[in-house]
Amino acid sequence: MRMGVMRRVPWGVFLALWFVVPPVGAATLERLTLEEMAAKSTAIIRGRVISLRTAQKGPLVYTYATVQVQEQWKGAPAVRLEVATPGGKLGTTEQHFAGAPDLSVGSEYLLFLWTGKNGLTQIIGLCQGIFDVKMDASGQLTVRRAAITETLVDPATRTPVTDDGMVMRLSDLRARVSRTLAAGGAR
C-alpha cells in the first residue's frame, strides 16, 4: 500500500521497503513499476501517431492522438486507438502541464494505456507509461524512458542494472511484460 508523503515501513521488516515506492512530482504522481503498469493497464500497444487533435473538456484542453496500432500486448484488439493527454493548443488557448507528454505525429511509442468509465483512454501515470521506440545501430528496436530511482535487477545475473534512464530492447520488455501478464498481472 502506498502512503504518499507519510510512507510507512514496519520497523525491522526490510522486505517491506520494497513497497516504499515514492511518488514523483510536477503533477503529483505515484511511481509505478513496470509490473504494476502492465497489471493496471487496460491495453498495451506499440504504435505510430498518425494525427493529433485538441478539444476542450471543462476548463482543460486535451490533446487526442490517434495511434495506428502495430503491435498489441494487452487489451481488446484494435487497429487504431485515440489517446488523450492533458494540455495542448486550442485556438488562442495553450495549456501545458509539466509531466504531461507531447506525442508527435510520425513518432513510434510503446504505450501502457488505461480506459476509464468515461471512455477516455489515457497513458498510465502521465508520462510513466510512454516509451520512445527507436532502432539501434544493430537494427534492434529499443525502448527508452526517463530514469527510475528504484533498483532494477537483471533477472539473469541478479545484479543491479543502470538507472540512467530505462533503455532496453523491445523484445526484452515484451518478454518481461508477458511474464507479468502470465503470472496474473492481466487481472
Binding site: T28, G125, G129
Partner: peptide, 10 residues
C-alpha cells in the same frame, strides 16, 4: 477520472 499513477496536477 485519471489513469493509475496520477494523483493530481495543476
Amino acid at each position: 477520472e485519471m489513469a493509475p499513477g496520477i494523483i493530481a496536477f495543476g
